[in-house]
């Protein structure tokens, strides 16, 4: 498969005859990156699949109005993040009668996940990450695992670089404290 730049892909998408092909190229180019981004937020594979499909469906519907004021990659990440957070909120609302918060449910989902290949320490690290508030969790994952520069993160999450640095610091500190207590 040929490698096109985002600009070329968008140009092809705007052309009616190559629209579907361009969209399939966009899906191919970004599916893995977005999958892992979403997976770290919603944990479960099936839920990730749902959110990822919804992300691309929203992309298809919104791509005509995409003004290229930001990069395609940034825009896709923003949709994926919002979709994943929306999914978690919906999930937490649909389990109103559950006495446990969504973080606990995610932690349980992690324990029973057949697609989790990490060892004991990796499991503890994931559980530590799950204790973080939503936004901090996303910032931590993007910085620690994806090594996303703060400037890029700032565009995706629409938050200042300073606030993101502070958020990462708080998150890393909390994870560190959790690990100290649980990995003695």
């Amino acid at each position: 498969m040929e490698h096109y730049s985002d600009e070329e892909l968008l140009q092809q998408f705007r052309n009616e005859s190559s629209r579907n092909y361009a969209f399939s190229l966009i899906v191919n180019k970004y599916q893995k990156k977005l999958y892992w981004h979403i997976r770290k937020i919603v944990i479960d594979h099936d839920d990730t699949d749902d959110v990822l499909q919804n992300t691309f469906i929203k992309t298809w519907k919104g791509l005509d109005n995409f003004k290229e004021e930001s990069q395609l990659y940034t825009w896709l990440y923003r949709i994926a993040t919002n979709e994943a957070l929306g999914f978690l909120r919906q999930k937490s609302r649909s389990k109103t009668f559950s006495i446990h918060p969504i973080e606990y449910q995610l932690s349980k989902s992690l324990e029973s996940d057949t697609y989790f290949k990490g060892d004991e320490i990796q499991m503890k690290l994931q559980k530590a990450i799950l204790t973080l508030p939503e936004k901090q969790r996303i910032v931590f994952n993007m910085r620690y695992y994806d090594e996303t520069p703060y400037e890029e993160m700032s565009e995706i999450l629409e938050t200042s670089v300073g606030a993101l640095k502070a958020s990462y610091h708080h998150a890393a500190k909390k994870v560190e404290e959790y690990l100290v207590v649980h990995c003695s």
């Binding site: 399939s24 892992w36 499909q53 691309f56 697609y115 989790f116 695992y145």
Partner: peptide, 30 residues
Amino acid sequence: YGRLAAIEKVNPFDVEEAYFDTLTSAIQDR
């Protein structure tokens, strides 16, 4: 963050490789 730095930075999640082969068609079907 000493403890965190000591942990090997790996993606602990897994997915079937074939999943990505069928994703485009699943989205187009929808």
